Simulated scan of single mutants.
Amino acid sequence: MLEQLIQEIRRREKVIRIFPNKASAWRLVGALLAEKHEEWSTGRRYWTMDEFYEWRDRQRDSDAEDLQPESSNRTLQPA
């Protein structure tokens, strides 16, 4: 992910060729980061929490089953 971001900065840098000062370079990087942030916040989601919630519920159910005593038909008999 970081490598793609750096490649995108370098691609745009080649168009400009040379920056007049450091501030202009930082503006380019800032604009690119703002663009990526907007993409991520508005739609592109790699993970959703639904799968986690389903997994958590399955874990709770299996833990509850483990805590319940097993029913048996055995009765205690004197020795």
Rank of each mutant, 00 (worst) to 15 (best):
D66M: 09
T48Y: 05
D50C: 12
K22P: 06
E51T: 11
A34C: 12
W55T: 10
L76Q: 14
E38H: 10
S62M: 02
L33T: 13
E65D: 04
Q68G: 10
R74V: 12
E38G: 04
S72V: 13
I9P: 00
W55K: 07
Q7F: 01
E39C: 03
F19I: 02
R45V: 08
W26P: 12
R60C: 01
E39Y: 02
P69Q: 09
S24H: 11
R12V: 01
Q59W: 00
G43T: 08
E54C: 04
E54Y: 06
V29T: 13
D61V: 04
L2R: 04
F19R: 02
R74N: 14
I18V: 15
P20N: 13
E3H: 13
R60M: 01
E13S: 06
A64P: 00
V29Q: 01
R60Q: 00
R12Q: 07
E70K: 14
G30V: 06
L28W: 07
K36S: 07
L67K: 05
R27P: 05
M49S: 12
R44K: 08
R44I: 09
E39M: 01
L33C: 10
L76I: 15
S41F: 06
I16M: 12
S62R: 07
A34H: 10
R17L: 13
Q7S: 03
S41R: 06
I9F: 00
D63F: 06
L5H: 00
M49E: 13
V15R: 02
G30C: 12
E70S: 11
Q4R: 13
L76C: 10
T42R: 02
A31E: 09
V29E: 01
E13A: 01
R74L: 09
R10G: 00
M1C: 07
E51P: 07
R17Y: 04
P78R: 15
F19K: 05
W40Y: 03
Q68H: 10
N21V: 14
H37I: 12
R58E: 02
M49A: 15
P78L: 15
P69E: 03
A23W: 09
R58T: 01
M49K: 11
L28Y: 03
E35A: 04
P20I: 14
N21L: 15
F52E: 08
D63N: 02
R74F: 11
I9G: 00
N73I: 10
G43K: 04
H37N: 10
R11K: 04
S62Q: 01
L33E: 11
R27G: 08
S24G: 11
L28C: 09
R56T: 09
R74S: 09
P69W: 05
Q4K: 13
Q7A: 01
L67A: 05
D50R: 13
L2P: 04
N21C: 13
I18F: 10
F19L: 05
E39W: 02
G30S: 07
N73S: 11
R60T: 01
A31Y: 09
D61A: 07
V15A: 07
R56H: 06
E65N: 06
S71P: 15
E65H: 06
D57V: 07
